[in-house]
Amino acid sequence: MTEAAIKVEDITYAYGDLLAVKGISFEVQPGEILGFLGPNGAGKSTTIKMLTGQVAPKGGRAQILGADITLDDPDIQARIGVCFEEKNLYLAMSAKENLDFFASLYGIKDPDSLEILRRVGLADRAKDRVKTYSKGMRQRMMISRAFINKPDVLFLDEPTDGLDPVTSASIRATIKEEAARGAAVLLTTHDMFEADELSDRVAFINDGVIVAIDTPENLKLKYGKRSVKIRLRNGSGVREETVALDTPQSGELLKEVVGSGEVLTIHTEEATLEDIFIQMTGRGLVG
């Protein structure tokens, strides 16, 4: 097995007295996408800030590409890409100028900024100042900047925040391309659909701890309950029945319900990551 690109052991962080990250451990392999799924304030961004060297962990250890994160090693920093939660672009510069400038800091001689902008759908606006961009365009710009150095490790803090569904889908595709190229990707989201679709593995993070970490399928198998929702005409009204599929009595029950009236619709229901999240933490992903 190859060495993990991101290796985190029991790191903690506190803002003053507030423990934001309470000792979490995980690994991300090259080419793997790990999705951090959790509600506001769970500690997702704080974890990324520690791993990108913006803050020093108060406890625990972490290695990026084999080097301890506290070393602040420029050679390692040259191999990571970061998409920040808050947009931080040079608004007075054009998209291309932004990318060319950052590329130069990575020592990239002739960066293919236009190609990168094309991937996020901004090629035709490359020469316009970022100041003139819409919110979603700026977000795409943020993602493109994280790609500029063909990073081996990508940290993406809510990469599709504020993007329309079509653009989100295309950005997710480019993130998958990066992973296919071999990049280890750590991304955060509170969108369970995104976590499900994009991640090889998902980490549920709540209140500074990882409560579960596994592939979406395994999580659903382990914790989710499948069921069938049946709507029936009942005299003049409409009745709805839900039958769990994973019990020994499921078959009997199903027959009974279907036979009890005129069936209008039948839906099989698979637990979503959100259902499982609620089940495990007693709280939802939003609010």
């Binding site: 990108t52 060297g53 913006q54 602040d72 420029p74 050679d75 920093q77 040259a78 990571i80 970061v82 920040f84 808050e86 947009k87 931080n88 672009l89 040079y90 608004l91 950052f102 800091l105 990575y106 020592g107 900047r145």
Partner: peptide, 14 residues
């Protein structure tokens, strides 16, 4: 204020 300093500091820039 614009956060661009953070962007510089996560790159190899010191």
């Amino acid at each position: 204020e614009n956060g661009t300093l953070s962007a510089l500091l996560v790159s190899p820039v010191k």
